[in-house]
Write a protein that binds this DNA or RNA. Structure first.
Lengths: 239, 239
DNA sequence: CCGACGGTTCGGCGCCGGCCGAACCGTCGC
DNA sequence: GCGACGGTTCGGCCGGCGCCGAACCGTCGG
């Protein structure tokens, strides 16, 4: 009986603990934002929730420790995404909210597959999302990128790049090419100075247009044509 | 965009609100106790959670208002049971608790069907649970109880009762028979002075034995035989 | 009528948790 | 080397929430 008491006590504590992670407006806002399936930085989430960066840090620590969020540090950024378990929990709890009508809680069939904004976006200053990965794959397939001993441009790649962009990226301490993990695709895409220059060229040449309110990009018809010509890359029509 | 902000804000508040209901140790203990599928009184839950009755009242108010608990007032008692939605939520949240090994969280396939202790028990001072309902049904089938104009004993019922128990219940203001809703069976069983006397007889005659730590009853072999003889009631063997 | 008892209300207390700003650290890109 | 920037740590403030006990209400049963 003493054993039973202890067990139910710890079970209650565990239950209250998990529920407590979502029992705060700020943390709930963070999890709801992450329901889009993407990985966000701490500062982005702080902005979305309307709190100071330091406050966001504390909340993220709790959510990560509780297993609801999965984090990956990349450079000076802390990326965080919703775990699959957490996504389901958030969905069920939202559905159980009695207020009923007011918020037509966005129910995403297993949220982590939601790709609305994930199709094409910028990652800092280079192409990311399905577009970024597709471009990187196409460059690899054409022998423009080499993955031996880390990512690098091949000779063909250097020729292709200068022919396309015109100028070589200025010599700085920033590496020319860098492999950057994409957190919706879970695969690497092209970063570094070359990636940044390529992205800038895509914008200037009208291949893509930036969204005013997010990192999302929209591929134009001209962009689709250019990518087909340059890289043999076939993108599906606008969606 | 302002609309969108507002929506996600209310959605976050709703999510945090539901989670907050389970984010307290006492409320979590209450819900875990209710996972046995039975309806408990406020005082029982206060005892189970180790808090004052007044505190339990406040928690029950919150849980009922949030739709997690369903309450029914009966006389001076406040019965409360877990809603089906809440049972599922509790189960999922418990499963998501990271501690992992310590508590082997009792996962009951859709908890509200759990009948472990529900088979036979007392309700205040009369028989309840499947046993109470079965006895009531058998008495009705034999013409001992009438449901016209409220529940009452028939002439045959009065004869049967005096022959069995020997003495008629003392004349008090307490009604002789009363229909009492059973919250595991969701059907009425026999209460009132007659029900109490019948229960007392069942205990004295050794038909059932009381549990020391709960309201549970165990039907003896002798009790099974007596019920078969008296009411033609066939109970399944001991479980 | 009465006493017993389950439940509720209310005032008050103490603690914990969310928030911020300031200082600090590490990485980035020049 | 430097400045810019994302993130973290720390101290401190504040509000809210969970708790209790005492008083009270309604029902029950004699």
């Amino acid at each position: 009986m003493m054993v039973d008491m202890t067990d139910t006590a710890t079970a209650a504590a565990a239950l209250a603990g998990v529920a407590g992670l979502l029992a705060d407006r700020t943390r709930a806002t963070v999890c709801l934002a992450l329901m889009d399936g993407r990985a966000w930085t701490a500062a982005e989430l702080a902005g979305a929730a309307g709190v100071a960066r330091s406050t966001a840090t504390e909340h993220l620590n709790l959510l990560v420790a509780g297993g609801l969020l999965i984090e990956v540090r990349q450079g000076r950024h802390r990326y965080v995404r919703l775990s699959d378990d957490a996504a389901e929990l958030v969905e069920r709890l939202s559905a159980a909210a009695p207020p009923g009508s007011p918020p037509p809680v966005r129910s995403l069939t297993t949220a982590h597959r939601q790709r609305a904004l994930a199709a094409a976006r910028t990652c800092y200053d280079h192409l990311a999302g399905t577009l970024g990965v597709a471009v990187t794959d196409a460059m690899t397939a054409r022998g423009l990128l080499s993955w031996d001993r880390g990512l690098s441009l091949t000779g063909d790649g250097e020729h292709w790049f200068t022919a396309l962009v015109g100028a070589w990226p200025p010599a700085t301490r920033r590496p020319l090419v860098r492999s950057c993990l994409d957190w919706t695709e879970r695969r690497p895409h092209l970063g570094g100075a070359t990636g940044a220059a390529l992205c800038a060229h895509a914008v200037e040449a009208g291949w893509v247009v930036r969204s005013r309110r997010s990192r999302a990009l929209r591929v134009t018809d001209a962009g689709r044509a250019a990518l087909r010509e340059q890289l043999g890359l076939e993108l599906p029509p606008a969606g």
